[in-house]
Design a protein around this nucleic acid. Structure first.
Lengths: 139, 139
DNA sequence: GATTAAAGTTCCACAAATTCCCACAAAAAA
DNA sequence: TTTTTTGTGGGAATTTGTGGAACTTTAATC
């Protein structure tokens, strides 16, 4: 999963799955809260792994995990390729108008478009950042 | 992959893969942002290596890599040997009219032709540059 | 318990964008 | 020159993305 795609949430809270990600995300996927008010989207296969990890943590340590897990949404897109994102998640990520999907290899991320653009622009503005990152990748 | 080839982007954002690079790039290749507003093009085999590097970085540290990865495009040339470069990448590299491909061994680079020519001219203007470079190569 | 309102789903329709395909000019090879 | 390959343009058909209507379900009110 790669690339950046921007769509809007409609008044009913429906989100369109970008065509390029649709196949990889499949008919059923899971949305969970992520870092910095982003959301993470897992295709079913990956979700099973994540779920395993949840289960391997002892219940007593699970304060934070309880919160995360209780806000997971199982989503199934409709015929047009849209799905309804529960209000809690929409609120967590401040999704109001435009929303960007980011392909991140084995999963995707959902961000409020403005918030993400600001972050990205700030990062790109410092060209050392890119040079360092490429070096880390061995390029 | 070697050589320098210049073609144009058409209004639909299509780029022609230079004949001499076509075989080495294959039916599927990946385009990613590079230094100084250039783009990097990887054949599938090389891309797999790069992708490994991406995956070896823990999610929490991946801030920088997020921006890079979300600007990757998987490309498949059409029957004429052209492929569509997503607007984000075209914009990043300021591709409007003429575009040059540079063969760089295991990958290729894409530059705006004017921008690249200017850089090249500036570099050539100082003859010490060449001497230094050859020395680095042990020649 | 019936009626109405609100919220949530499913479906249909349409514009815009993208893909696919055909045609042709220019350049290179035979 | 003739033939093939390379490079470019554009139209037709399909897909994508968006809005909203119609229908269900849930809840609220009398």
């Amino acid at each position: 999963m790669f690339g950046k795609f921007t769509h809007n949430v409609d008044p009913k809270g429906r989100l369109f799955v970008p065509a390029k990600l649709r196949e990889e995300l499949g008919d059923v996927f899971y949305v969970m809260i992520g870092l910095e008010n982003s959301l993470m989207v897992f295709p079913e296969s990956k979700w099973e792994q994540v779920n395993e990890s949840f289960n391997s943590v002892p219940l007593s340590d699970s304060g934070a995990l309880r919160y995360i897990r209780s806000n997971v949404a199982r989503c199934e897109p409709d015929k047009q390729g849209r799905f309804v994102l529960p209000p809690i998640l929409r609120k967590y990520a401040n999704l109001t108008n435009d929303v960007t999907f980011l392909g991140q290899g084995d999963h995707a991320e959902i961000w409020d478009a403005d918030a993400y653009n600001a972050k990205e622009a700030a990062w790109l503005a410092n060209s050392d950042n890119l040079a360092t990152a490429l070096k880390e990748l061995g390029l």
